[in-house]
Amino acid sequence: MATAAAMGRVVEERGADFVLALGDNFYYDGVRDEWDPRFQETFERVFTAPGLRDLPWFVLAGNHDHHGNVSAQLAYSRHSERWHFPHHYYSLRLRVPGTNATARLLVLDTVLLCGSTDDFGVGATPGGPADAAAAKAQLSWLRGRLVAARHDLYVLVAGHYPVWSVAEHGPTTCLLRLLRPLLRQHHVTAYLCGHDHNLQFLKEDGIGYVVSGAGNFMEASQIHKAAVPPGVARFFFGAPESPGGFVHLRLDASAATVTFLEATGRVLHHVALPPRDL
């Protein structure tokens, strides 16, 4: 509730065109069907601030969503004007304000790509995709979309599992192997994720890695700090007494500006990523 209220204030102060939900939308076991009361109890009746009411939400699935019925979350798009979940993975073309330039947001299902995890063991990692052919198809789709985005001023990729993280779950081995080389090859601006319950900014080879998993739980562990290359981890916030936090991302002609905010409204960290060299 605190995070939702703060998001509403930030939308009014800083502006926003949409909200991006980075997975684990419903703890602990997703939803049963498209009529599940959780859609009302923890979405429609929570994110009610004036600034949020009319914004579209673009959604992806996390491991806890896959413990339930992800197809029901897709189907709920028919029942809500602001819940947009068109496919397990999809692409959004964005206009960069004040320019003729475009940006691209590529939304992934990292659980289908890498497999599920029970999420409760320190360092618990996905055990491999349940459907290897479907994982291969998603990766092929991503490669094609990254090639097609070569003229976009910014390219953002979003998924639930982190590539890099110093926290409880740490780096995702599958994504280091499959996704990290593609992000580097195609000069992606940033990778956005959740899963670990804190706020982090990491940077490697010019790519920003944004972890925004602090909408509810907050965890202070940095147990995987040694698993991240030296100098890559730039910011971490996971104070257990905090009411939560989130990230505001703004694209304009000069930079992709990433602002980490606590649910109190306090600005925790601020970074600017340059446009891609086209």
Rank of each mutant, 00 (worst) to 15 (best):
V188H: 02
A214L: 10
L178A: 05
H169A: 08
T172D: 03
V258M: 07
S254M: 09
M218V: 10
H195Y: 13
T172S: 11
N216E: 14
L249I: 12
L249N: 11
G194D: 02
P243F: 07
A255P: 08
V188R: 01
A227H: 11
R250K: 14
T173V: 06
F246Q: 01
P240I: 14
L192Y: 13
Q185W: 08
G238T: 13
G213D: 01
R180P: 00
V163P: 07
H248R: 14
A214E: 00
L183S: 07
A255C: 11
S165W: 03
S221E: 07
V228C: 12
K203P: 00
T259Y: 02
V247K: 04
G206F: 01
G206K: 00
P171K: 08
R184I: 15
T189K: 06
H186P: 06
F246H: 01
A239F: 04
P230R: 13
R184H: 11
L251E: 12
E204T: 06
R250L: 06
A239Q: 15
G206Q: 01
E241N: 11
E219K: 09
T259V: 14
R250V: 06
V258S: 06
R177F: 02
V211D: 00
A190L: 07
Q200D: 07
G170N: 12
A255T: 15
E204M: 03
W164N: 04
F236W: 01
I207A: 00
A226D: 08
Q222C: 05
F246K: 02
